[in-house]
């Protein structure tokens, strides 16, 4: 386990840094628009603290798009950047396998890779949709 964590640390950090920016922008935009909402005015009128309003009320609503974004980003991550990160770090993952299969012109392996990628993306998006439905009842029609 320690070995896995040891080898995962740098590649994972690189990927994480790469994907951290976009959620930041989305979260910021979400906060900005939530902060203008009426329910916050009401909350303030009730005498809730600023802190509580921001983090317990506004942030929770602003987080919703982040859940959706996670699905999209995971899709991007498994189908894109892993190829580079795994190549640079010689990490034996799907991206490297795919890259090598291309080099060997190994079509069955390529098909397998694409299938797994597709399943991953579909699966993650399904989970995300289910999670959003649970978190935000408004989306269920």
């Amino acid at each position: 386990m320690a070995d896995i964590a040891h080898h995962l640390f740098l590649p994972a950090t690189v990927m994480a840094l790469q994907f951290a920016g976009f959620p930041y922008l989305v979260m910021r935009a979400g906060m900005v628009s939530e902060l203008g909402s009426d329910y916050l005015v009401l909350g303030r009128a009730k005498g809730l603290s600023d802190r509580r309003l921001k983090y317990r009320y506004a942030a929770r609503n602003a987080l919703l798009p982040i859940v959706n974004l996670t699905g999209v980003q995971l899709g991007l991550a498994v189908s894109g950047v892993v190829i580079f990160v795994e190549t640079v770090f010689a990490y034996p993952g799907l991206g490297r396998l795919l890259f090598e299969a291309v080099g060997f012109q190994d079509y069955p392996t390529l098909q397998g890779c694409f299938l797994v990628l597709a399943l991953l993306v579909v699966g993650v998006n399904f989970l995300v949709d289910a999670a959003v439905a649970r978190l935000d009842p408004r989306t269920v029609t």
């Binding site: 320690a2 040891h6 034996p92």
Partner: peptide, 13 residues
């Protein structure tokens, strides 16, 4: 070891 992580073969430094 840390920088290159030739995964699966490097023992803990």
């Amino acid at each position: 070891t840390a920088a290159l992580g030739t995964a699966g073969v490097l023992a803990l430094g």
